[in-house]
Design a binder for these strands. Sequence first.
DNA 1: ATGGTTGTTGCACAA
Length: 257
Amino acid sequence: MIRLATWNVNSLKARLERVTEWIEDVQPDVLCLQETKMADDAFPSLHFEAMGYESAHYGQGRWNGVAIISKVGLTDVVANFAGEIEPDPDARIITATCADIRVSSVYVPNGRAIDDPHYEYKLSWLDRLQQHLQIDTSPERDVIVTGDFNIAPTDVDVHDPNKLAMSTHVTEAERLRLTALEQWGLSDLFRHHHEGERLFSWWDYRSGDFHMGRGLRIDLIMGSPSMVERSNFVVVDRNARKGPSPSDHAPVVVDLT
DNA sequence: ATGGTTGTTGCACAA
């Protein structure tokens, strides 16, 4: 059994104590992190090593930053997009092989607003993610692409679809990029096991949104057909969003036989 | 409609 998880921690420096406690509690074999907000030389690799994890981090400081930590092996690391794809100026994707699974930890650009240049950058980034998978691996293999997609796949994943209509995270263009990933061979493992269930992974810090249940499900674990076959349990750990100094995201966990 | 909160080599900007 492999337990794999993803968590946008919104600063690993600010969150290290909580992340450490969560790892001790949940014992993931592979944990993908996003928004570490640190440079590679600040990443606490020795701390994770002492906990039994190898790690690979790709970060620049201040913003973004992605990592994979694993206690079931970690090889063939690719930071940024593979091959000849135009490199992303931000640190938003890192890929490694863990227990023969090709794992990518992704932090898809937020998009900010549909009339903001960052929105076009988001769409372009998703197109390049598709190219990356085409070059880096194959849907015939064990593939997991997981992280903060900043896209709510359907209106079931949105607390108030009417309020968010025509804003980022829910537009047709963004959802079409997810559909393209599905056509390539990936499935949303949470949705596969929880049809129709309205459960979120992110809540704005403001206005008591978490307490009021106003969130989005934007943290996804996408898996190739063999991963769908092997996945038997997917959960959003909502408890990790509670208590003092939480990230604004909750972790998502899958158990693979 | 607006505002609200958190994090950062912060004092503005991203989310």
